[in-house]
């Protein structure tokens, strides 16, 4: 039998609950989205938020950075943004007679890449490379990015004018994609009554720090994935590949992502082992941007199809 994990799960859960609560003060009525975002952070992946402007994407990113006591940078992606604007640039210094590297906004712990689909593919790919490699290579010098490094990219729905939709291969770099959606009535009432959100962010205290976050990220790998869960994951992946609803199934990388997110979700909920429910909770966010709907099946949304996929595979 595999080794028993001895994670201080209760302690971890307490601090994570605190973090969720902290962010919930800022983003009202979006508990689940916050949990998913933290899951993504714990799983050491990058997050893509896709929604209309003004639903609190930026606020969420800011709140996360603040709660975990992380450096925060924000880049507004526009169509004329160049890779150097993100990564940094070497400038010739006349006094020292050499090129000095001026690091770009990517050298931070939390990077908000706002409206990433509005920039050109060239700039997008520069960022995505940095995300994948956790380092930036410029002028032959490789510079590591700080740890932890967490990119939250936001994307407006691609139907809008003047956007460059991310290709599938690059979507795959994001561990999760979530939608925030409009708040419900009560939350919206609170929102209108309350103070300015940006003001509130300044007021919230950090619950954890960067080193603690790295600890937590390590703890995610310790969460036990039983043989039964591996079988379940395999069945889900296989089913997605055989299903006529999708033109292509989940990739092996998607399988790994699913497992890791399920582990993070379990940890977030104070467990040292993964349950089928954990997988079911995270799979819409992990799989939706990786699956292509079969052209014959356009009348159903990807989320509906994923629910159908879950229903189809016995636990």
């Amino acid at each position: 039998m595999q080794k028993q994990t001895h994670l201080p799960v209760e302690l971890i859960q307490q601090s994570l609950q605190q973090a969720v609560k902290n962010i919930s003060h800022i983003i009202l009525g979006k508990q689940r989205q916050i949990q998913l975002a933290l899951t993504c952070l714990l799983a050491n992946g990058h997050l893509l938020i896709e929604d209309m402007p003004g639903v609190g994407k930026t606020t969420l990113a800011l709140a996360i950075a603040k709660t975990f006591g992380l450096d925060f940078q924000r880049v507004q992606f526009t169509s004329d943004l160049l890779p150097a604007d993100v990564l940094g640039i070497s400038i010739y210094d006349i006094e020292s007679r050499q090129f000095n590297f001026h690091s770009g906004p990517v050298f931070t712990q939390v990077l908000l890449a706002d409206e990433i689909n509005r920039s050109t593919p060239k700039t997008q790919s520069a960022l995505l490379e940095a995300m994948e490699e956790h380092q930036v290579t410029q002028d032959g010098t490789t510079r590591p990015l700080p740890k932890p490094f967490f990119v939250i990219a936001t994307q407006n729905p691609t139907e809008q004018v003047g956007t460059f939709p991310l290709p599938e291969s690059q979507l795959d770099r994001f561990l999760m994609r979530i939608e925030i959606g409009y708040p419900d009535q009560n939350a919206e009432r609170e929102l209108l009554k309350g103070t300015d959100r940006r003001q509130a962010i300044r007021q919230i205290a950090s619950v954890l720090d960067a080193s603690e976050l790295i600890e937590l990220q390590r703890a995610v790998d310790e969460v036990h994935v039983s043989k039964a869960i591996v079988d379940y994951l395999l069945a889900l992946i296989r089913s997605s590949r055989l299903s006529p609803w999708f033109s292509s199934g989940l990739s092996p990388r998607a399988g790994l992502a699913l497992q890791k997110c399920a582990q993070a979700w379990a940890l977030l909920h104070g467990r040292d082992h993964v349950l089928p429910e954990d997988v079911q909770q995270v799979i819409p966010s992990v799989a939706a941007h990786r699956l292509q709907i079969n052209p014959d099946n356009q009348h159903e949304s990807i989320d509906e199809l994923i629910i159908k996929l879950i229903k189809q595979v016995p636990v």
């Binding site: 349950l275 089928p276 429910e277 079911q280 229903k311 595979v313 016995p314 636990v315």
Partner: peptide, 9 residues
């Protein structure tokens, strides 16, 4: 129990 239903649910 639905076939897809997890034990906690």
């Amino acid at each position: 129990r639905e076939p897809c239903e997890g034990p906690v649910d």
